[in-house]
């Protein structure tokens, strides 16, 4: 896009943030009473809602049962009103199927599935407003929902996007920065062990820039994990205060 500077000379981005600054993260857990676990997350203008059911018996095809682990079933969809133009096909198209697959793989790595053989855990994520970083918002919301459902995990799974403009890595991209044609790296990280559950990158980037880009994304994820941790602790305090009374 001509004329739109992703990084100004003073080091400010389009929305006034610095290069390594994250967007404001707000989250609430336990938004649905009927689900086993649920969470609502806002990362800047991106709003995601995650709902977890399980562990329960494998529904549908019996053949999918694994004798030693739980099966994780993910479904990703976007609300038709989430983007600037009305989305014609909210789910079932290739992009949504791919996202669902990626979410499933991310959580298969993080959740201790060996504790629940022959069961199924369902994770449903919906994007209510899309402003860049769809995948990361989904992962963060789903992490909180899994914690709310009480399903044991190895660590928080935090995800963040990062981009590269003029030799400076930018953390947590918004929609305008993503579609500007520059590089977008999405990373899902388990902060304590620094292991990457999923890495996904599009558009051209020179090999030498890969290291600083990944470093920036990992730092952003670690910062996110602190915020998620504080949200969980706060929620627990509220719930325990209620139950005590």
């Amino acid at each position: 896009m001509a004329g739109l500077e992703l990084l100004s000379d003073q080091g400010y981005r389009l929305d006034g943030r610095r290069a390594a600054e994250l967007r404001k993260l707000q989250a609430r857990m336990g938004v649905f009473a009927q689900a086993d676990g649920s969470a609502y997350l806002e990362q800047g203008n991106t709003k995601a809602l995650a709902v977890v059911y399980g562990p329960h018996e494998v529904r549908g095809s019996r053949s999918r049962t694994l004798h030693d682990r739980a099966v994780i079933n993910c479904q990703y969809s976007m609300a038709t009103f989430s983007t600037a133009e009305r989305k014609r096909r909210p789910h079932g198209d290739r992009k949504s199927s791919e996202m669902s697959l990626h979410l499933k793989q991310t959580f298969e790595a993080a959740v201790l599935t060996q504790l629940y053989p022959r069961s199924q855990i369902d994770i449903y994520v919906k994007i209510l407003q899309s402003d860049g970083g769809n995948y990361s918002a989904c992962v963060n919301a789903a992490t909180l929902a899994l914690v709310d459902a009480g399903i044991p995990m190895r660590d928080y799974v935090c995800a963040c996007t990062a981009g590269f403009v003029e030799d400076t890595p930018l953390a947590d991209l918004c929609h305008a920065e993503e579609s500007g044609g520059g590089t977008t790296l999405a990373l899902a990280l388990l902060p304590r062990s620094e292991s990457i559950a999923l890495v996904q990158m599009d558009a051209r980037l020179h090999q030498d820039h890969l290291d600083p880009l990944m470093e920036a994304a990992m730092t952003a994820c670690k910062g996110l994990s602190k915020v998620l941790d504080s949200v969980v602790r706060q929620h627990l305090q509220e719930v325990s205060v209620q139950t005590r009374e």
């Binding site: 991310t106 790296l185 990457i196 890495v199 990158m201 558009a203 090999q207 030498d208 470093e215």
Partner: peptide, 21 residues
């Protein structure tokens, strides 16, 4: 030209940054 066009990890593996590099 040593430009990375896309990276995608699949399967439930945990990678370290230097492995990717």
């Amino acid at each position: 030209h040593r430009e990375i066009c896309s990276i995608q990890s699949s399967g439930g593996i945990m990678l370290l940054k230097d492995q990717v590099l």
